[in-house]
Nucleic acid binder design. Structure first.
Length: 224
DNA sequence: GCGACAG
DNA sequence: ATCTTGTCGC
């Protein structure tokens, strides 16, 4: 089998996007949220060839029963470039978000918040654009150093990057690899970590992102 | 200069 | 993310 590299990302484009991230990251506000959490949404995207299917699942809190599901399906315009995931997925996620009849108090995103090279992961990016509280729950680390947490559910360890405590690893299930939690916007690390653990009921992933992940996969059959 | 690199 | 088979544990 041949080794085929991805089509090279335009250096000029990457440079301008990097600038945009630096500017937008200055708008990110990390603070204890002031809302009363009554509804929260999880979002995620799946791909079918050159098309992207983004989903938003609205849940009631703390019951976590599903209130609404919306999605949007269109061709993708950006390739995946580590550190620039938001420019590939956020546009379509915003389209799906607009379809929600009820807007959530908080958005949980499949990816990172401020635990990003320039402090603007997709969760922060969406938070700034929507001016909504957001947080990220990722399955893999992007930047930073950390020690593995104890094997018991609820165990956590800090993730540092440039001497800043930007995220936490969190064991949401006994003896299962931890998830990586970070605040996105209008949110703080402690609350984000608590909510990630609290909404992870029977699975490794918190219900909001787990369900968004599930429907993103399930809805593929519908769009064909 | 050499790796690492969300989804 | 997607491709892709069997396998281990609750």
């Amino acid at each position: 089998m041949y080794y085929r590299p991805q089509p090279p990302a335009d250096p000029e484009l990457i440079r301008s996007l990097t600038e945009r991230q630096k500017e937008m990251s200055q708008q990110v506000i990390i603070q204890k949220p002031d809302f009363t959490l009554r509804t929260l949404a999880g979002c995620d995207s799946s791909f079918i060839g050159e098309n992207i299917l983004s989903v938003f699942v609205l849940l009631r809190y703390p019951e976590l029963d599903i209130l609404e599901i919306q999605y949007n399906y269109v061709p993708v315009e950006m390739p995946y470039v580590p550190g620039f995931l938001a420019f590939r997925e956020a546009p379509n996620l915003l389209k799906a978000y607009e379809k929600l009849e009820t807007k959530p108090d908080l958005i949980m995103v499949d990816g990172h918040g401020i635990s990003h090279p320039r402090r603007l992961g997709i969760a922060s990016y969406l938070g700034v654009l929507l001016q909504k509280p957001t947080m990220g729950v990722a399955k893999k680390i992007l930047v930073g150093k950390y020690e593995l947490p104890a094997p018991e559910k609820g165990s956590l360890t800090p993730i540092f990057h440039r001497d800043e405590h930007i995220a936490n690893t969190l064991r949401t299930k006994d003896k299962v690899k931890p998830v990586f939690v970070s605040p996105g916007h209008l949110m703080d690390l402690e609350t984000a970590t608590r909510l990630a653990l609290e909404t992870a009921r029977k699975h490794k992933l918190p219900e909001p992102t787990r369900l968004a992940d599930h429907y993103a996969e399930e809805l593929k059959k519908e769009v064909r």
